[in-house]
Write a protein that binds this DNA or RNA. Structure first.
Length: 519
RNA sequence: GCACCGAUGGUCUAGACUGGUCUAGGACUCCAGCCUUCCAAGCUGGGUACCCGGGUUCAAAUCCCGGUCGGUGCACCA
């Protein structure tokens, strides 16, 4: 019976295991679960929320503050004019036709383009129906007749105010807030090119079929930078030398045409020089992303940057590169890197009448835009998969999160609840919390069970208060990865934890470093 | 959105075909207490479930219909 249980667990797909532990340990829950849920919507639980905060803070520090970018927080709900200008109202919309016989759905414009080689892009459903009728187009799978075409807009529509029909949309990307605030930010912050505007926030897309846990959802979060450059600055971005030798795993269009799946490693400088990527600014951000993913616990062996094919990118793109990660469910887009050129600012200038040019050396220019857009939920999922462990040395599953992402830094436990150990542990817990550590406290059950629980949510260190602690003010620190322990004096606890959480020293070394300091 | 399949405590599941001893059983988990000076395994007690709505029937976890959610395939994924 026991063996049977273990074997079913081992046979489970990784995504299912991650989902189980997420529900069980408070990482992610289905939204409105007690009412049967809503497809494509999830809530973060307490543990997931801590992780999400750590991820966003890390990004904020590394992608925003260290670059001197300006972070804003824009409205989720926006008027239709924004999306007329951005092109989402026309392009983010698929006209679908359904076969009367076999009920298959197709994109009406694709059917027309495939069969009679007529560009039907952007036509209204009525026009599409007419073309289909005139050319007697039928279902590719069963030759049946089509029903009338219907618009399927991927944006979620709502109403504002008391008057019927006053339409607004939930934003399908965070980018537009940045473009429509571009002038305000540039002026209020006296920004000089090149500069960046960053934003993290929710976006909404009415996906036809959300699937695969938190990978394809209707509401998700982006951490995004729009980096603005004068044209001549694109090949000479700030700090470029710092990352010029970083290696990028690239999958070029050429390689894709040949059916090659495995990326080739090219340094940023080489990629720029060989024109494998649009410009140095793009290369700089790709390198930065790779480092970010490494720092938050994603195995970089699983990363590639894929040059999107022309049909996958909008016409104004100067070359998009997706950061894809090889998950158990296949290669998955986690970051979209778009070279949007001047498209958005020019379009908003045209539609709104607001001049988007900003002062630059001699005169006004409309800057070029590089957009690294990181999916928060997908990144968290990648971290979960990449850090998930089932090992021989323990009967439970665990997460090998780096401290940059682990929900807690440390758990504090009394060895047992008696003889004053609980009070002492409580004191130490509160002290550590006061020092700014993310710390949890637990007294229930045996110590081994508590270590297992800490492992299961990937807490790197546990501090245990035992009988010796009561005598000589020393405590043990247990290392999640090795299950080894060291004993430190309470006076050193704070420093030791800081050393350990910096990840710069091996667990064994830290004891010696402290001993050294005391001499 | 289509087709097929599925849904029982926090998790894995028994029961469903053949409606009624099912006031739904087990294992793990969880909670309380005892025991225990370091890796989920001892003892005692306890908590928690038939996805939602309707129908058939004397009687529904079980049969039927609709919905929701999930899986797979198709389609979709600016």
């Amino acid at each position: 019976m026991e063996e049977l249980k273990i074997s079913t667990k081992e046979n489970k797909p990784l995504l299912d295991k991650i989902q189980d532990v997420s529900f069980r340990r408070g990482i992610v829950f289905p939204a409105a679960d007690i009412y049967g849920g809503l497809a494509g919507a999830f809530d973060y639980g307490p543990i997931g929320t801590l992780m999400r905060q750590k991820l966003i803070n890390f990004w904020r520090d590394y992608f925003v503050k260290s670059e001197g970018h300006y972070e804003i927080e824009g409205s989720l709900i926006l008027p239709p004019k924004v999306f007329e200008a951005s092109g989402h109202l026309a392009k983010f919309c698929d006209p679908l036709v359904q076969c009367k016989e076999c009920k298959s759905m197709f994109r009406a414009d694709k059917i027309i383009e495939d069969k009679i080689e007529l560009n039907a892009d952007g036509l209204a459903p009525k026009e599409l129906d007419e073309i289909i009728a005139k050319n007697k187009l039928t279902c590719p799978s069963c030759d049946g007749a089509f029903m009338n075409a219907r618009e399927f807009n991927l944006m979620l529509k709502t109403q504002v105010g008391s008057v019927e029909g006053n339409v607004a949309y939930l934003r399908p990307e965070t980018a537009q807030n940045i473009f429509i605030n571009f002038k305000r930010v540039a002026h209020s912050m006296r920004a000089k090119l090149p500069f960046g505007i960053a934003q993290v926030g929710k976006v909404y897309r009415n996906e036809i079929s959300p699937r695969q846990f938190i990978i394809r959802v209707r509401e998700f979060e982006q951490m995004e930078v729009e980096a603005f450059f004068a044209e001549e600055q694109l090949d000479n971005p700030p700090h470029f030398e710092e990352l010029a030798d970083e290696v990028l795993p690239l999958l070029t269009r050429e390689m894709q045409a040949k059916g090659i799946k495995k990326s080739k490693n090219v340094t940023v400088a080489e990629a720029v020089q060989k024109k494998l990527i649009p410009n140095a600014a793009m290369g700089y951000y790709l390198a930065k992303e790779k480092i970010l993913f490494e720092e938050v616990g994603v195995n970089t062996e699983l990363i590639r940057f894929r040059h999107m094919l022309p049909k996958e990118t909008p016409h104004y793109s100067g070359g998009n590169f997706d950061l894809e990660i090889k998950l158990s469910i296949g290669w998955t887009e986690v970051v979209g890197n778009a070279f949007r050129q001047q498209y958005d600012l020019i379009s908003h200038e045209k539609h709104s009448g607001t001049k988007m040019a900003v002062q630059h050396t001699n005169g006004n220019v409309i800057p070029f835009v590089i957009e690294p857009s990181i999916g928060v939920g997908r990144t968290l999922y990648c971290i979960l998969e990449s850090c998930y462990r089932e090992t021989e040395d323990r009967d439970w599953t665990w997460f090998q999160f780096p401290p940059t992402i682990s929900p807690y830094d440390v758990h504090v436990y009394p060895l047992m609840k008696k003889d004053g150990m609980e009070d002492k542990a409580q004191e130490i817990f509160e002290e550590l919390r006061g020092e700014g550590f993310e710390v949890a406290f637990d007294t229930s059950g045996k110590i081994g069970k508590r270590y297992a629980r800490a492992d299961e949510i990937g807490t790197p260190y546990c501090v245990t208060i035992d009988y010796d602690s009561l005598k000589d003010d020393t405590v043990t620190i247990r290392d999640r990865d090795t299950m080894k322990q060291i004993r430190v004096h309470l006076e050193d606890l704070n420093d030791v934890l800081i050393l350990l959480l910096s990840s710069e020293y091996a667990f064994d070394e830290v004891e010696d470093i402290i001993a050294e300091q005391q001499k």
